[in-house]
Structure formats: C-alpha cells, structure tokens
C-alpha cells in the first residue's frame, strides 16, 4: 500500500484542528496515512496521543521552537523531509488558509503539482483522481496529475473519521529557520467555535439567515430553528456585513460552501453569490417576504411571507410532530 502524507494542523496550545480527523479518513481510503506535524518539542507526546485517538499509526514530528517566528515554514520543511523519506503517492492538506499556504510553498519547493479543493478522492490505475465541485456545484470536474505526484488540498468536512489506534510510531525530524525573511506572528485571538452546534461545513441541516431579518436580535429566530433541527447556523454575506452573524457563518462564493440534506434560507434574497455556496443542498426551503426573490427559483419549497410569523409557527409545528427521542 502506498504512503499518503497528511498535513496535521494544530492550535497554538497543541490541540488538533477539526480538519485532522476527516482528512486522515480520506488518506486511509487511498493508502497508508503518515501524519506530518510540526510543533514545539513539549507538545510531542500530547499530539501523538491525540493523533492515535484519530486513527493514526505513524507520525512524523518536526520539532521547532520557532512556532511564532513563521507562518508555515516549519510545516513546509517537515513535509519536504517526509516527501523525500517516504516516497508518497500523494500529500493531503486541508483546504484551509494555512493549508493553502503550506501546499503552495511545498509544491514549488519539491517540484510537485497541485490538485485544489477536492471533494472526493479515489485511486484509478494507481493514480489519485480528484472530484471537484466548481462554480458552487454547477459543474462536477475530475482531475489528476500526469507524470507526477499530487499535493491535494481537500475541502473541509470531506472524509469519515477513523477508529482510534493503540498508539502511533513517532519519527522526530529537525527543522531550521527559513532562508527568507519570514512573517512573525504577534497576538493571536482564537475564533469562538460553536460547541453545541454541528460544524457548518458538514452539518446535515443548515438554517441560514439574511438581511431580511433586520437585526442581530432577530437573527436568534434562525438560531432557534437550527437548534430545534440539530442544524448549523449560516448567514448571507449581507447579514454578516450588517453584523447580524459572525464571519465564519458566511455561506456563499466567498464564504463556506455547504451541501446539506436540508438548507433553510430565512430572509435571504438569494443573490447568485449566495447560491454558489448552497445550491448543491439536497432540499432547499426558502422563506422570504419578496415573492420575486431569486432564492425561490431554486427552492424545493418556498414560502412567501413574514419570517417573524412563519418561523415561530414552524418551530411549534415541528415541536408538535417531533417523534425524536430527546
């Protein structure tokens, strides 16, 4: 079985990011996953343990005390060493802000090619073939790298987590400072994560609110409905710009792309940029007071009316019908 390198993202305090477990799952469908991570030496044991919990059997740990002196350099060096040592069939990296930087530098440094934003990966005659969802799901494209080994950025939320292992072997490698002037990290403020709600990218139900809700207070309507359905909360760019919802809830061309079983758009007109982020949903429901809102063109069930009347009634109706065991 071929080796598949998996780039592991961790927080400054050494916790695995939520991209790690699903990415490991994707790697295991292609070959033997080898995790590549860089962090300060005292985090080694804890990270190796967390990785074994996530199903890793083999970890390459790059020890660095330069964690704030560089954005990505230790990661790129660790991956470069691992590419040389393990002759992988692919390098998998989460399609995150830092992941894209790592992938870009690594591709140039080791002379490998890139596959971007894969939503599915498979082996075909020994080569890694990726599926991509382009223009917000309007096109399905398959790509591969000819005569080379790909570095693949994988869309966040793709992949099923693995069972824990009994422990992972850890190889330790050393990294050095960059041979260019680097970017130094100053104060870091972690974004708050909604602990009680499913992750937006992988949730099976998403309830999103738009500008039509009129205020941050009214946005609670969307949250109530989302919680009732065990769904994630999303927002249109207009709602985010107006300050009704945090930026990491933005669904659309420039935000998160979602493809849930059920997408409920409340007070969202459905500008084409918003649709690009959600039109791959299996079922779309829209509630909007403007009967000409473009969201109705793609909604499986559209309600023209006042969200402030309809959503509370819907919450009551669902509550009355709910057969779900609490």
């Amino acid at each position: 079985m071929s080796n598949i390198l998996v780039f592991i993202e961790t927080s400054p305090s050494g916790e695995l990011r939520n991209t790690v477990a699903p990415l490991l799952g994707v790697a295991a469908t292609l070959g033997h996953p080898i995790c590549v991570v860089s962090a300060s030496p005292e985090r080694r044991e804890s990270i190796a343990q967390q990785l074994s919990q996530s199903g890793a059997g083999h970890v390459v740990f790059a020890s660095t005390d330069q964690t704030t002196a560089s954005l990505v350099e230790p990661h790129v060096q660790a991956l470069t060493t691992a590419v040389q040592n393990f002759a992988p069939a692919a390098v998998l990296i989460a399609n995150s802000v830092d992941g894209r930087d790592v992938a870009g530098r690594l591709a140039v440094r080791v002379g490998m090619n890139l596959i971007i934003d894969a939503v599915e990966l498979r082996l075909q005659d020994g080569a890694v073939v990726a599926a991509h969802s382009i223009f917000g799901g309007a096109y399905l494209v398959e790509s591969t790298v000819h005569d080379g080994i790909p570095i693949v950025t994988v869309r966040q939320g793709v992949g099923e987590p693995l069972e824990a292992t009994e422990g992972a072997t850890v190889d330790v490698v050393e990294v050095t400072a960059a041979n260019y002037v680097d970017v130094v990290i100053g104060e870091v403020a972690e974004k708050t994560v909604e602990q009680d709600r499913p992750e937006l990218r992988s949730a099976s139900t998403v309830v999103s609110g738009g500008r039509g809700l009129g205020s941050k207070e009214n946005f609670a309507l969307v949250e109530t409905l989302a919680d009732l359905l065990d769904g994630a909360v999303g927002a249109s760019r207009a709602a985010v710009d107006a300050g009704y919802a945090p930026q990491n809830t933005q669904v659309g061309q420039t935000g998160v792309t979602v493809a849930p079983d059920l997408y409920i758009a409340v007070g969202i007109s459905g500008a084409i940029q918003h649709r690009a982020g959600m039109q791959a949903a299996k079922t779309i429901v829209a509630i909007n007071s403007d009967e000409h809102a473009p969201i109705f063109d793609i909604a499986d069930f559209g309600v023209v009316g006042d969200a402030f009347e309809i959503v509370p009634q819907l919450v009551a109706e669902i509550g009355a019908r709910s057969t779900r065991v609490p």
Binding site: A107, V110, G111, M112, N113, L114, I115, V129, I134, G137, A138, Y139, L140, V141, E142, S143, T144, V145, H146, D147, G148, I149, P150, A280
Partner: peptide, 14 residues
Amino acid sequence: RSGGRSVVLTSTQR
C-alpha cells in the same frame, strides 16, 4: 515538467 502536469479528465454540468 518534472513535477508532472495537472489535467482535467472530465467536466460535467449538473
């Protein structure tokens, strides 16, 4: 071309 070329195999409109 040592790193190979990335190529599109199929492209289908949904």
